[in-house]
Amino acid sequence: MELTNYLGLAAVLFAVGAATVLLRRNAIVVFMGVELMLNATNLAFVTFARIHGDVTGQVLAFFVMVVAAAEVVVGLAIIVMIFRARRSASVDDVNLLQS
């Protein structure tokens, strides 16, 4: 088996995460889609680390995880706030940017 199979899996997962972001309305599910995309990149990083024989890729994946954790905290807090204000977790209800 080639290691590029891992990359293919990462690509598919990334695309599925992106489609989730586009298709789902529930903010929490959308957020999960974002997490899925981040995880897919992490898989790619780890695979590249293995291809090149250098753990720096794993370090980068580690940073991605940490930043993702921070992002989740803030993002979920925002979702909670919006839910409190609007009684809805749908991203389509937050459309005040509309002209």
């Binding site: 972001v21 586009l22 298709l23 959308v30 991203v91 389509d92 005040l96 940017l97 509309q98 002209s99």
Partner: peptide
């Protein structure tokens, strides 16, 4: 062009993607 600015995050995400 304004019609593209419908305020929906998902549309913006689609544009970005």
């Amino acid at each position: 062009l304004r019609k593209t600015q419908n305020g929906y995050v998902r549309t913006y995400a689609a544009t970005m993607l």
